[in-house]
Design a protein around this nucleic acid. Structure first.
Length: 444
RNA sequence: GUGGCUGUAGCUCACUCGGUUAGAGCGCCGGUUUGUGGUACCGGAGGUAGCGGGUUCGAAUCCCGUCAGCCACCCCA
């Protein structure tokens, strides 16, 4: 016997979880499309050099790599940004700029696992490339907002910052050269606390006065209207000032687009470890589960595909981590409890009427109703019990008596009520009646 | 990858200093009810204690290894 098992960080998805996942994907797809992002797909496997080109040593360590049957050095994608960069470089001339795409796919990272942190997980990226317009930046914020709202989250916060603010302040402090290290340290502020960050900065040779300024900056909190002027003071003119102005524009634009205030917060402490960001950066958190980390992050970059083409491709985009989000929803008890897509259970009551059942099921399905027709003429009680256990919202019972009278019994499983449908043997009438009643059930 | 905690039935957990056939609740299956699901009652199935090795007369219990989950670091979705 081979022991059935899965690798560390790789998971099976049972119906309840898979349904919840698919629902998130559907919502994401709908929102992306509503902003006119177009779908693309790329291979799971790439030439190793394509993936490691940008390679920080960290991503190199996490990369799944091997030599394929043809002796090629290959790697599995660990995010969707690098494949997109390659894709953009390869197809830029056929795309037309600016170009907006979304890409929902599985990625692999050989890192250590934790809750909401897996070795195989799905990302839902969207990016706009070929424009530096602040409108594109704003759009990213709006998409993230609409996405999290459409998923049904009530309490979430999108935190934004602008790398130029950080860069400007670092320049003023004479720390431009060690930006990456300083940003990495600042990024830990929320988790590690100011003392730890101060100590780390000191280790990097940052002067005490500079550390004080940086921490003051990173810990600015309050309503956007209060944070902005204080940030402007710290940032001064030049790049920093431009960053503050950009943030101001985003806040105003988001308000104009109807984002409730409080959901979008300027947080100068958001630095993001990735060093390719050059403008706005964004992270989003579930208010009840901050420890889960960001479920959707992104930002603006100057040049997406510099490794693969001379054509400069500036862009802005973000990535929704649906597996992490799903872990969060589960923990909050907000994941749907259903384990079947069926909307209606059709009891297999009288075996003599199988063909009638099949005809009815076919008509219902034609009408867009997901029907489970029970395959065996088991005891009615058992059938209903199973339908209830699966969480099917409604059941249709038609026995020989009903067939004789041209009626049907429609049961609302959650409400435990039954109603009689009079259809006189006309399937179209039955379908219309079922559809109407389904709209009234809990799932409708 | 480094360090720590955990691993007993489908799920949540118990089993006093290592000591007989490892228990409970929930869930599951069946019956009471050969045409009607959440309650009640009755009955039943299900565990080589993650896996492998060691110590011991004897291991779920102690030790080592391994696999997996979680937590911290790191990094990030």
């Amino acid at each position: 016997m081979i022991q059935p098992r899965t690798l560390k960080g790789f998971r099976d998805h049972l119906p309840a979880q898979a349904l919840a996942r698919e629902r998130l994907l559907e919502v994401a797809r709908r929102i992306y499309r509503s902003y006119a992002f177009a779908p693309i797909d790329t291979p799971a496997l790439e030439y190793l050099e394509v993936l490691t080109g940008k390679g920080s040593d960290e991503t190199d360590k996490q990369l799944y790599r091997f030599v394929d049957h043809g002796g090629r050095e290959v790697g599995m994608r660990f995010d969707l940004t690098v494949p997109f960069a390659r894709f953009a470089a390869q197809h830029a001339h056929e795309l037309g700029l600016p170009f907006k795409r979304y890409h929902m796919a599985t990625v692999w990272r050989g890192e250590n696992t934790q809750r909401g942190r897996y070795r195989e997980f799905m990302q839902c990226d969207f990016d706009t490339i070929g424009t530096t317009s602040p409108v594109a930046d704003l759009e990213m914020v709006l998409v993230v907002h609409d996405l999290l709202a459409a998923i049904g989250l009530e309490r979430f916060t999108i935190r934004i910052n602008d790398r130029r603010v950080l860069a400007g302040i670092l320049e003023r402090l004479g720390l431009a050269g060690q930006a990456t290290g300083v940003l990495r340290s600042l990024d830990k502020l929320a988790k590690a606390g100011p003392e730890k960050v101060a100590a780390e900065l000191a280790e990097q040779g940052v002067a005490e006065a500079a550390t004080t300024t940086l921490l003051e900056m990173a810990q600015l909190t309050g309503p956007n209207a209060e944070v902005l002027p204080r940030l402007a003071d710290l940032a001064g003119e030049g790049r920093g000032g431009a960053g503050v102005a950009a943030l101001e524009g985003i806040v105003a634009g988001a308000q104009a687009a109807g984002v409730p205030s409080g959901r979008l917060v300027i947080d100068p402490g958001i630095a993001r470890g990735l060093d390719y960001y050059t403008g706005i950066v964004l992270e989003s958190f579930l208010d009840e589960l901050p420890s889960l980390g960001s479920v959707c992050s992104g930002g603006r970059y100057d040049n997406l595909a510099g490794l693969y083409t001379k054509q400069p491709l500036p862009g802005v985009g973000a990535s929704l981590g649906i597996d992490r989000l799903l872990a969060g929803l589960e923990e909050l008890g907000q994941a749907p409890a259903r384990e079947t897509p069926a909307e209606l259970f059709l009891a297999h009551f009288d075996p003599a009427h199988v063909n009638d059942y099949l005809a009815i099921a076919a008509a219902l399905r034609q009408a867009g109703i997901a029907v489970e027709f029970f395959p065996e003429p088991r005891k009615l009680g058992q059938q209903l019990k199973l339908a209830d256990k699966r969480g099917i919202p409604a059941a249709l019972v038609i026995g020989s008596d009903e067939f004789k009278g041209g009626t049907a019994q429609f049961k609302d499983m959650a409400a435990q009520t039954a109603a009689t449908i009079d259809w006189q043997g006309d399937i179209a009438t039955l379908v219309a009646a079922v559809r109407e009643r389904l709209a009234g059930t809990a799932a409708g």
